[in-house]
Each structure stands twice: as C-alpha cells, then as structure tokens.
Design a protein around this nucleic acid. Structure first.
Lengths: 215, 215
DNA sequence: TCACTTGAACTCAACAGTTCAGTTCAGTGG
DNA sequence: CCACTGAACTGAACTGTTGAGTTCAAGTGA
C-alpha cells in the first residue's frame, strides 16, 4: 500500500479519448443548462462512468475550469488578426478595412459557442473570478495589441490621424464587435443584413473621423 | 374550512412594509451572491420570517421575477431621455450632445446596481427567458425610440444627415454605452478619465460622419 | 376578532463526491 | 497464439449536505 494518496489523472491513449469525450459533453451541457447541470448528466452525455469523470478532473469546478481554458486556446485569434495584418499593404484602405471587419465579425458571429461561453463565464464570475481574468486577457487584451498595432501602423503611414490610440481601439470595437456581444448576451442575434450595414457604416464612420485625403 | 385553497398575497399597510423590506433584501443578496443565495439568508437579511417571504411571493422564482420587474420600472428613463429632448433646441449641437452623453453614461455608470442586475438576468437567461425579453424591451427597445426620435428630429432640421437610422442608433450606443456594458460584464470598470475621452471622442466621431456645416 | 407574522422543526429532492466489487483492454513475456 | 498483469473503466449503491418549500402552534397588532 503506497502512502502516496495523490490521485494522478489517468494517462494513455484510451484515457485521452475519454478525456476528450468528457470535455465535449461538459462543454455542451454547461452551455445548454449552465453550471447547475449535474455531474451524472455530464457523465451520461459523455458515455462514461461518473467515477471516470472524477478520476480525470477531480471536481466539478476543475472540470468547468478545464472546459473554459481549453476553449480559450482555440478561437478567433487566427483569421481575425491575420486579416488585420494585411491592412498596411492595402491599396484601398476602406475596402480592406471592410473586408477585415467582415472576417472578424463573422468569426465572432459564427462561434455561437465561444460567445455563449463568454456569457457563461460572466455568469459565474463570483464563483471563478480567476476565469474572468483569464478570459479578459485572451479576449480583450489579447486582441488589443493586434488592433492597436494595425492602427498605429496606418497612422505612421500617414493614412490615419489618431490622436488617442486607446480611444480609437475601443471605438473600433464599439462600432464593430460590441453590438454583437451585447445582443448575444440577451440571447438574440443581429440579423445578417443589419450586420452588413453595421460593418460598412462603422468603417465609413471610423474613416470619416480618422481618415486623411491619402486614404 | 374554506374550499378555496388559493393563497392570496397579504395586503394592508403592515404587509406592504414587509414586502418592500423583502424586495430590498432579495435584490441586494441576489446582486452580491447570485441566484444561488438561500431563501433563509434573504429572510434573515430582510428581518422577516421565511414563512412571510413565501406568503408574499410564493416561490423563489417568483421573488426573483418581482425583484427584476420592480427594478425595471425605476431607472434611467428619466434623466437620460430628458437630456435627449433638449437636443433639438440646442445652439451648439456638439456641446449639447456631449452634455447629453455625459448625463447618460454617468447614469449607467452610477447605477452599479442596474448594470449588475442586467448581468444577473443574462446569467439566468436559461431559467427565466421571459425576463430576458422583458429587460430587452425596457432597456434597449425602451430607449431606442427616444434616441431614434432625437436623431430623426436633428436630421429633419438638416443638422444631421442620416441615411440609415437603425444603424446610426446602434452606432450611438456602440460608441457611448456598450463599452461600459461590456467591461462591466467582466467585472471591471472603465476609469473616469477614459470615460470622458470616450464621450468627447465618440461625439466627435459621430458628428464627423453625420454632421453638416450647419452643425 | 381577524389577518398577518413568527420560529422552529420538518419533509423531500437534488446533487457532489465516494466506495467497492467486478470488468475491459492494451500490452508484455513466453 | 495464449496467459497474465495492471491500469483504466463501470455500475450501482451509499454518504452527507444543502436548500426549497411546508406545517403548526403560538404571538402581535389594528
């Protein structure tokens, strides 16, 4: 009998499959029912014994944390910040901005799941304050640099005049992304047509204020 | 023994006092601890017996609903939409807009409580979908007409040129209000100084796009 | 007198987490 | 190809707690 009472999580190929199945199920049920969902339901949905769930994750809170942090790695960083990179070389800045914004907003809208997870984290802030912070880092502060960098570059090129970068970044979000975030937190969505008008209108407005003749 | 088994809520002046005390306590505790708070705690905080709570509200869900709907009646409709009325007569439109926005945003920021209640409703959307809808009505759609009306009036006066009113309204929100809503849902706040720059910068941007020379 | 209130004890269900005896299955050595 | 081994898995029963809602006998106040 080993004195070592620490329960290591299972390893091996078989265990990894179960782990993924549990994460998938937990994510889906947390999204559908909130944190209040029972561990039995999650185990059942994953097609796995409850004991296995506990062997892997140790507690409900740990499972929730794993679901969130695993979701933190996947999403929109790729396409959307890539779209921002190309801005500096674009001939037609307006068209390029519209295109970038379109990519970005569609990434946000397409991921029902990620947006819904954001709401879930917000809902459980009092139970998991550290998750709120983690999400804030990856989300807002994670993209700030990309947006800020793109805007600064354009300003350095003389194609934009931006006296207050911090404000400009938030305005960029406010015009393009926040409407979708806010509406989704009510459980509704902005329809396709209005989304499109918001994008072109937002870019127009942004350029009307910050653009120069060389735009 | 009356066959009538329907429990009417208590009435009378003393009952009304208790009712208010319960609502106040419930609101405070729901805000501080979320929907998970125990009915015993609420009763204790209200200085009232648990039985009295149930005599008045019947169930926890009904109590929660009452807290929200009672909060729906009170808030920012007054000052903020009043500030929008005066816009039509203003000489200096920019100054007037900044002033109106300042009033409005301060109303949103000052009411930690209302904003926090909004998050609470969003958190419990799956349990109370009808509350989400009610909040949306009083909140967003409740103010839309005021904002839309003010903007339309200014457009009719020829002081603004607004091709797409629906978009303009959302942009107005997006520049001025949404940043605060989004940040507060992360549990953070935008500081005083940045708030001010967002207001003036937002109005500038709005006017740069929609304003005319007669502005 | 009558409606309202109280406190304390109670029921009942849900749910996190555990225990255990037995089963699956991927290797490993022969 | 087989037998054995051990880690991972299962299912079902169990513990312990928490919390919603109820009951009741007694109190309060217009």
């Amino acid at each position: 009998m080993s004195v070592d009472s620490v329960k290591r999580p299972p390893s091996g190929p078989r265990a990894e499959l179960k782990r993924q199945a549990i994460l998938r199920a937990a994510r889906e049920l947390f999204l559908r029912e909130g944190f209040g969902v029972g561990m039995d339901s999650i185990a059942a949905e994953a097609g796995v014994s409850k004991v296995t769930v506990y062997n892997h994750f140790g507690s409900k809170e740990a499972l929730f944390t794993s679901v969130i942090t695993s979701a933190l790695d996947e999403p929109l960083a790729g396409e959307s910040s890539a779209a921002l990179e190309g801005l500096a070389d674009a001939g037609d800045l307006r068209a390029a901005l519209v295109e970038a914004a379109r990519t970005w907003v569609h990434a946000v809208r397409a991921n029902h799941e990620v947006t819904a997870l954001r709401n879930l984290v917000a809902a459980e802030l009092h139970r998991f304050p550290e998750l709120g912070e983690a999400w804030r880092h990856r989300g807002t502060e994670g993209h700030h640099p990309a947006v800020a960098g793109a805007l600064r570059t354009l300003a350095d090129q003389g194609r934009l005049v931006i006296p207050d970068l911090q404000v400009a970044v938030i305005q960029f979000y406010g015009l393009l992304v926040f409407p979708h975030v806010v509406f989704s937190s009510y459980g509704t969505q902005i329809d396709e047509d209005l989304t499109d008008r918001l994008i072109t209108g937002g870019v127009d407005m942004f350029l009307a204020h910050y653009g120069t003749q060389s735009t």
